[in-house]
Design a protein around this nucleic acid. Sequence first.
DNA 1: AAAAGAATTGGAATAATTCTTGATTGCGGG
DNA 2: CCCGCAATCAAGAATTATTCCAATTCTTTT
Lengths: 145, 145
Amino acid sequence: MVSHLDQLSSALPGETEIPDEISGLRMTRQRQEIYRILLSGRDHPTAQDVFMRAKDRLPHISLATVYNCLEALVQHGIVRQVNFERESSRYCPNVQEHVHLHDPTTGKIHDIEFKPGFNLADILEIPHGVEIEGVEITLRGKVSA
Amino acid sequence: MVSHLDQLSSALPGETEIPDEISGLRMTRQRQEIYRILLSGRDHPTAQDVFMRAKDRLPHISLATVYNCLEALVQHGIVRQVNFERESSRYCPNVQEHVHLHDPTTGKIHDIEFKPGFNLADILEIPHGVEIEGVEITLRGKVSA
DNA sequence: AAAAGAATTGGAATAATTCTTGATTGCGGG
DNA sequence: CCCGCAATCAAGAATTATTCCAATTCTTTT
């Protein structure tokens, strides 16, 4: 399955061409800008961060709209919402299955990939009768490089 | 390493004898009650839940105290704070390393154990220079049994 | 028993997010 | 091209979980 990310991230942030509709979601001006912002820097911004960045191109945008757009994008599987502890939600344009590494010293979040063919049941005692529908893994640690 | 859970959970909830001090934390009356509540039903209650249950034995306890006590217990590694999405934090007296399975249909949370000798690096591409300090895994799924 | 230090309380304050309401926009049919 | 409907947007109010604060009460130390 090819992600929207792969299709779109080749162009430069400002010029990225975003279609009128993605996964059945009408891409309005503000949804486009917000999605563009997420695609451009892969730094897992919060709604506030996105709001501030969006004002460059959409001076009249409201925080509520940012929340609405982010929610719409999340609902349609176009972006992923990332929660760390009880901090503000962060948003990520990478919808491939992956895990997040949070470095408490820098505050940065890094994406980490699964090994191909990984299987949760290899490391967990999954009882019978349990059907796993989703996995959420967050690592805490230091990144020296 | 023997957990406090193992030492304490044999007695009945109400009678459970809790020492004056655990891991360097002075166990005041309210901390004892709150810890007892967590030990008795392993249902991952929220601070509100704990507050309501605590009022049976400590009618004058305040919600702030419940938060204070829970925080103290968490800081001293006596209980574990569990966050699911952006919901209220839940608290768990099981401090062994384990993961949580959230069943959205029932709203219940189940503990799932790691297999002995598990290794995260078996399923994840951990880059060089990354030192993992903590892991948090949450599964979403249905429990039929 | 007095002093010092911790813990507890109740209420106010905060922060993130959601809700509400009214205005605006975009679009298909006439 | 214009009309009407539904979706979207904006602004601010409301909500919710949690934290902070100041005053009081316990504990422990002296």
